[in-house]
């Protein structure tokens, strides 16, 4: 890994570590200008996937990743992730494993949250982005409120709910703002 991570300013490498509450507060209070120069105009979250308990993609949203992926690709990726998640449980050296929570790739981080019913939510974001667990929990709340409580929604089927879309856009936006240190 010659450059990509190594040359980032110190603040970013500090973001990569799991920090305490106090650290988070300090991050939030860093002057806006300084943080912006690190983050440029890139979106922190690249995309969001929701897959049902049998591995079918029921929701996909792209927030500006390079190179468009067609629907078939996203469906394949979602079901591949479902299997990888299951295999990782098999390989655990200790009992009680509930699958991959964080995958750190060279150019992105993938955070995954699995609800008790087996629905999986995962976001693809910039390496070292903080607050992704809470974003996923928040998206799960939105899902229970606006999708599951929608009388016209059929379980395990693709999500088409306007209110969910609106609130989701707000949540991701809000998270981006939190990252900018406002």
């Amino acid at each position: 890994m010659p450059s990509a991570l190594g040359e980032e300013p110190n603040t970013l490498s500090a973001l990569g570590r799991r920090s305490s509450k106090a650290d988070e507060k300090r991050q939030r209070h860093t002057p806006l200008l300084e943080t912006q120069s690190n983050k440029q105009t890139m979106a922190a979250v690249y995309s969001l996937y929701i897959i049902n308990k049998s591995g079918g993609l029921i929701f996909y949203k792209d927030y500006g990743s390079a190179g468009r992926m067609d629907t078939n690709d996203t469906l394949r990726l979602a079901s591949l992730w479902h299997s990888m998640h299951a295999i990782s449980q098999q390989l655990s050296p200790v009992s009680g494993c509930s699958g991959i929570e964080l995958l750190q790739a060279d150019t992105f981080d993938l955070h995954c949250f699995q609800s008790l019913t087996g629905t999986k939510f995962f976001v693809v974001c910039e390496p070292g982005t903080l607050h992704m667990e809470s974003l996923l929990k928040h998206i799960y709340e939105l899902y229970t409120d606006y999708v599951l409580k929608n009388p016209f929604y059929e379980m395990e089927m693709p999500i088409r709910c306007e209110l969910f879309d609106i609130n989701l856009a707000q949540a991701v936006q809000k998270d981006r703002v939190a990252l900018l240190g406002r």
Binding site: Y46, S47, S65, A66, G67, M69, D73, R76, L77, L80, W81, S83, M84, I87, S88, L91, L103, A105, D106, T107, F108, L110, V124
Partner: peptide, 20 residues
Amino acid sequence: GLLFSLKSLTAKMDPTSVEK
């Protein structure tokens, strides 16, 4: 198998490259 498949997953998912 897990590593092999995860590698193809990350290669396809890479949000920074155009041609995957």
